[in-house]
Structures are given as C-alpha cells and as structure tokens.
Amino acid sequence: MTAETLTLGKALNAGLRRAMEDDPKVLVMGEDVGRLGGVFRITDGLQKDFGAERVIDTPLAESGIVGTAIGLALRGYRPVCEIQFDGFVFPAADQIITQLAKMRMRSLGSVSLPITIRIPCGGGIGAVEHHSESPEAYFAHTAGLRVVACSNPVDAYAMLRQSIASDDPVIFFEPKRRYWEKAPVPLDGDFPSLHSAQVVQAGTDVTVLAYGPSVKTCLEAATAAASEGRSIEVIDLRSLNPLDLPTLAASVERTGRCVVVHEAPVFAGFGAELAARLTELCFYRLEAPILRVGGFSTPYPPSRLEDEYLPDLDRILDAVDRTFAW
C-alpha cells in the first residue's frame, strides 16, 4: 500500500486529483479554485492539469455555485463545490436546504444529486468575522444531506474520495487550522466506512467525543490526563449524519462518562443531539450527565478573544473533572 507524507491540505488536493482521474464527470467549482488554486491552495494545480472546463472559477455567488452544481448533476456530472469560508455558506443555504437535500424525495428516487460541498470551518487562524464559524448543526439538521468532518490528513484524503463517490449530497467540513498538519497518508487500500466513528485514543475512564479541528485538542487533553493517571477515550465522530451510534454507545457503556467537544456554540448545537441519544442508549450505565464543551452562545468573537472562546485543553479537562465530581 502506497503512503505519502502529506499535509491535510495536500491530502485533500490528492483526493480531489484522484477522484478527477477516476471519473471524468467529477468537476471542481468555486471562487478562485482555478488559476489561484483556492485561497487555501486546496485545488492547487488542478485547473492546469484538468482544464478550465473541469475546474471552474465561478462568479462570486455561493447560491449560484450550489444551484448550478445541482443543474450539472442533473446532467450527469459529479460536482465538488468549494465554499471559500464557513461564514459564506449562508447565501447558498437556500439551494442546499430547499433543493439539494430534497430533490431525491421530490423525484421519488429518480434523481440523484452526487454533489460534495467542501467547507473550511472553525476558528484559530486569527481571521476577521465570518471566517471562523462552525455551521455543522444547521446541515446535520437537514434531512437528505450527509454531513462529515475530517480531522487529519489520512481521513481528509479517504473521506473526500468517498464523499465524491457517494450518490447522496455530502457536506464536507475541513478543519482549516489543521490544513498544515502532516501524516503519512495511504493512497490506496480499504478505507473505513465514510460514516464510521473511530476510536483515536483508547481509554477506560471517560469518553470524549469530538470531530474536525477539536479532535487534536482532545488528544492533547488525553495525553495530559494520562500523566495524571486518568484514562480518556477519544472518539473522532468523522460523520455527523448519519451518526455511528453503536461505536459511541459501546464506549460510553464501558466508561460511564461522556464529554462532547465542538467549537460551535453549545446551545442547540450538535452536542445536544449526542447527549440526548447517548443518554437514551446508556442511561443505566451513566455515572454523570453528559457534559458539553464548546463555543459560547455568542457570535464568534474578534480573533484576539478566540483563544478564550474555543474549547482548549484546560476547558476539556475541566469538564472531565466535573463528570467525576458529579
């Protein structure tokens, strides 16, 4: 099995390239994805190699990007849309929610829309407003969409290829502050199912659930906790819809404690769904309520305050401590 050491960003690029080589119907479209290679260079070199007909610099209109992608998919293409930043997906929200997610049911199954929408998400890069958001719950709430979030280069490559191959629309969240993390990335072979959660750190005392950029923070928290004799199991959800509940419940059944971590505001966030479902499944095994650590229930703050806003190692460990003090 060939593996190549790649950054997460380069792994996404390799995944896109491979998908385009494998299927001539795969298109890449978005703002600045062509000559520039995207503002994060995720599509670097693709237009040069695959041409401007397949790597399309679109007008600056997100609803237009998703709406025309739907039309291209109706014509038999398999578009991969790039939304430049999380906070810019909202002009496309109508096309995603009222059209993309519902077309299959509207057609009684005669229409498939195999569209992947890549969204760099989350904070931590010192950006201005609208460049650090975590809008995953809006999309996880919308039936008809699949929602996934990669956390590392290996998954970035494999999950992007799997998302593009899916006949359902997939919202693909990329942890933008982890774009420069490196790892050896297997380029072929059997990848875990797109919608499986992965235990990324085995442990016995408490289950910590995370996805996207928070996974690394949780792993760091687990390392710190281990030095104090506490064993944290970290699970990377990878997929928010559908949710791999059996894997999550099996862990919580064992540990009896659970903390959910995400960057999005905690109130009505994705953690609420996890807490509700796991409480229902593991009620008699729980030693404490499932606690959530995340962004505050405020708009994303100016970047000089984002280190306070984002759940860090200490806030995660504080929540872990609270589950033991219950």
């Binding site: 709406g67 992608a69 039309g71 293409y77």
Partner: peptide, 20 residues
C-alpha cells in the same frame, strides 16, 4: 420548483453541462 426562482440556477447549471 416551489421556492421562487431556484430552478433558474438549475437550468443554467444544466446548460453548462450541455456545453461540457
């Protein structure tokens, strides 16, 4: 299509597919 105007983008995208 019931949401007003959404289908015009689908038509434009479909037409881009015809071109391709």
């Amino acid at each position: 299509t019931i949401v007003i105007g959404s289908q015009t983008l689908h038509a434009a995208g479909y037409a881009m597919g015809i071109q391709r």
